[in-house]
């Protein structure tokens, strides 16, 4: 069984962002990047499936990024992925085109399961897995907090606003990982060193036969700073008095 894990390279969320001079993007200077945390959860889940239910599983990490994106694929390799594929691409893209590129890879690789993060922590779109499932005509199980293999497919616990929903679906399928699916492992130093020596397969959108057609055009960005001024109070009683002034508290 093959498990494909799309991996997005994202700016580390724990850093101060600056806009570029045109204010239509983030200033790339001095930015550090990481593997999208939800994708790391997806990699971890794929490895656990290989370690338990399906020892024959081959875990393939795929990233669409400039050449530097190899670093994030090496993170996936160091965690234990069997193969890594970089679709080298330097320009902006969007969930629709990411899904098209992934669909082209899937057509070639024929995985049984695609495991990916439910959202990337840079654009927070939460669309790519659903778009990919729609394009392929595959079933989807989004926001997974538990995956169990059953006779004719998988049973997935999903985190929804109304509570935990359980569905089952046939394979092949797209599953998107929520925060509580697992806690990703840290790669050991020897495995990091081994991952550095592994080769990363390379392709491009052109080689995959995909010409990007952007659906989302970015016009501008603004940094959001707090507009609030905090009035400090001395006691709980004073705080309550202030809250009553707002007429929210009776």
């Amino acid at each position: 069984m093959k498990i494909l894990v799309p991996c997005k390279r994202v700016p580390d969320p724990d850093q101060k962002l600056r806009l570029n001079a045109e204010t239509v993007g983030i200033d790339p200077a001095a930015l550090t990047y990481i593997l999208n945390p939800f994708d790391a959860i997806a990699v971890e889940e794929a490895l656990r499936i290989r370690e338990t239910a399906h020892p024959d599983a081959e875990v393939i990490a795929v990233s669409i990024a400039p050449a530097e994106g190899e670093a994030d694929l090496r993170t996936a390799l160091a965690m234990g992925a069997d193969r890594a594929l970089l679709i080298e691409h330097n320009d902006p893209t969007d969930p629709w085109n990411v899904a098209r590129l992934l669909a082209a890879v899937i057509e070639h690789e024929q995985p049984t399961l695609v495991l990916m993060g439910k959202q990337a922590v840079d654009d927070d779109a939460n669309q790519t897995g659903q778009f990919l499932a729609a394009q392929l005509g595959w079933p989807q199980a989004t926001f997974a907090s538990q995956i169990e293999f059953i006779d004719d497919g998988i049973r997935v616990h999903r985190e929804t606003d109304l509570g935990i929903e359980v569905i089952r679906t046939t394979l092949p399928a797209i599953v998107t990982a929520d925060l509580r699916l697992n806690e990703p492992r840290y790669a050991s130093l020897p495995s990091i060193l081994r991952a550095k020596k592994k080769s990363i397969e390379q392709t491009t959108p052109a080689k995959l036969g995909v010409q990007l057609e952007l659906r989302v055009r970015l016009i501008g960005m603004e940094l959001i700073n707090s507009q609030r001024h905090c009035e400090k109070v001395e006691t709980a009683s004073n705080l309550l008095a202030k809250l009553r002034e707002t007429e929210v508290v009776g």
Binding site: D94, A99, N126, Q130, F131, A133, T142, F143, T160, D161
Partner: peptide, 18 residues
């Protein structure tokens, strides 16, 4: 979560301008 799951998939069937 309902819209993210279902409406996003519908968008995937309708050309992805979302």
């Amino acid at each position: 979560t309902w819209a993210k799951d279902i409406v996003s998939r519908a968008a995937g069937l309708l050309g992805g301008a979302m």
